[in-house]
Design a binder for these strands. Structure first.
Lengths: 336, 336
DNA sequence: CTGAAAGCGCTTACAG
DNA sequence: CTGAAAGCGCTTACAG
């Protein structure tokens, strides 16, 4: 059966305490004893149980990523989440941490945290006055918030420069002669990622002397289907718009598809800028101009920050802001 | 701090054994005691630790999905895997199981299984004579193999009807007048998913009286980039081909993009059939004709099968074959 | 119907 | 440098 620390101890003719010591690089164990034990461990392919260890230590080498139900499209639908989680997984793997996948639905059921004694949490895009947010804080375990813009000092947070992203995308469109620019957002609130980007959008508009027109902001366009539906709303707008800035690449893909079905071509009839730079964006037809954020790296940063927090290591900056950049491809063009 | 079974016992004025009994619906506990304990559990928001429980029981309510390194494109790149894992997660959630994400790389490191006492494994697309396969079997824990075609009775396996899929896609193309049909595969072997589909391809060809030409089979086209490169290979083929059957949707997307960049249009210049029916396939331009498999359901089936195995429940059929169907969209057309 | 006790596989003071 | 013992939070025969 499974080999335990006892087996190793017996085989080596020492106590389990000694084996435990070499396992943890602790205690004063003579070099030769340690060596012998190491050899036997390798031989028997012994791996200490995190269960037993965790029961004593209160740590399990297990963390979770929480993605709130239905933001920016489904979890399965948006590669953004996968690249992110992939980054998290990469960032924890070397430190012998594993990540547990946990879909938190409307019930806000967080019992898995207690059940599995999860060591820490990475939470993506949560609203600071949601029930879920309060439940998470109540857990009082190491947590890193991503894309959440929570106005609460002391929290560990990772963001991209969303305001800049909103600004750059809009400015690019303006520089190509567009003046009527639709902004397709997921959900509008008075804070959060989309709000920051909206601020950037407004800033670019103002800078160019263009008036902000709230009717040009279309909601519920965060998912592919949402973007698809936004195409119809866009078409039926009273003013003639010549460009759209969609705050997610999958939303942009949906929008382009919707336009295509109505006989509108991108960028000939309408220029489109996306947001995220998921890997599909290079392969769509036309390829997508977008605001690039390094999603994978972002996940890795969050993991690093969380592990530092778990291990009680000091961090110089709890609030990390990652850069974004404009990636010009084929979905935008100068206005004729 | 964390509330334990002791706290509940003290509060209820009973022993921990009794609390444990009501927790597990075991033992003979008087209705009123049970009720009182239940109330206190709810009140104190007590969740039993799977750590402690697992230490005793040897079960952790934790399973893992293993996706071999780099097949059908990267894990992050191919929505196929996410939909699959999403299905698995759905299938386990109701049974209070969680899934641990584990990227197994070239080192074939499976130590997380022992470390976390994982209860079971779902393995996707593994080669029966790989080192990894042998290591997995050596673990001797409940396992379900997906898309693996392992010729070993007694194993739990889940597949789709890949031969039929290969047949249907090819036949569709033939029915539209195509006779020179390129087959873009991931990796060719003498067994496995792509091999089955190749068999279907050959069958359709034979049925139509068309000769099989090995030069029309292009390898390394399982990923998006692979499909993209396949476009060039396809163009430089000595014979004039009018259609391609790509054994993954993301490969097909890459191929279409590659063709597009060389000035070839789909389906006007070349008809393309994909495989999988990931959710993007409806949104690409043109939308993709493909062989649909219900990936989410497949993941769920695998989860069901695994849980049955873990719980020692009898299953009528260990080897599950799920259906596929042809989904005709806009990337294929009659030859002119 | 209920409780005392052993034990799961580790770690950690504390002796020696 | 090394070991005996307690304890982490549960479950499970076994008594009563």
């Amino acid at each position: 059966m499974k080999v335990t620390i006892k087996d190793i101890a017996r085989e080596a003719g020492v106590s389990v305490a000694t084996v435990s010591n070499v396992l943890n690089g602790k205690g004063r164990v003579s070099a030769e004893t340690a060596e012998r034990i190491q050899r036997i461990i390798a031989e028997k392919n012994f791996v200490p149980s995190t269960l037993a260890r965790g029961l004593k230590n209160k740590n399990t080498q297990l963390i979770s990523v929480i993605v709130p139900y239905l933001k920016r499209g489904n979890f399965e639908e948006n590669p953004f989440f996968w690249q992110l989680i992939s980054g998290v997984e990469m960032g924890t793997k070397d430190h012998k941490f594993n990540v547990m996948l946990t879909r938190v639905e409307q019930d806000n059921d967080l019992s898995f945290v207690q059940m599995h004694n999860v060591d820490g949490l990475i939470v993506v895009g949560i609203d600071a006055d949601s029930e879920l947010y309060r439940s998470i804080l109540a857990l009082k375990i190491p947590t890193v918030f991503m894309d959440s813009y929570i106005d609460q000092p002391g929290l560990y947070q990772v963001h991209n420069d969303d305001l800049l992203g909103g600004y750059l995308g809009t400015k690019h469109l303006i520089s190509q002669g567009h003046t009527k620019i639709v902004l397709v957002v997921g959900k509008l609130a008075d804070r959060g990622v989309d709000f920051q980007r909206l601020l950037g959008y407004k800033k670019a508009l103002a800078e160019a002397g263009l008036a902000y027109d709230a009717r040009l902001v279309l909601e519920n366009g965060g998912s592919m289907l949402g973007g698809y539906h936004a195409a119809q709303k866009l078409i039926s707008l009273p003013e003639k718009v010549t460009a759209a800035f969609v705050l997610s690449d999958i939303g942009a893909m949906g929008l382009i598809k919707g336009l295509y079905e109505m006989g509108k071509e991108v960028p000939a009839d309408l220029s489109v800028v996306g947001y995220d730079d998921i890997f599909y964006s290079e392969y769509t037809i036309p390829s997508l101009t977008t605001i690039r954020q390094d999603i994978f790296k972002k996940g890795k940063m969050a993991a690093d920050l969380l592990l530092a927090q778990i291990n009680g290591e000091p961090v110089t900056e709890k609030n990390i802001l990652l850069p974004v950049e404009l990636k010009v491809r084929a979905s935008t063009a100068k206005i004729l």
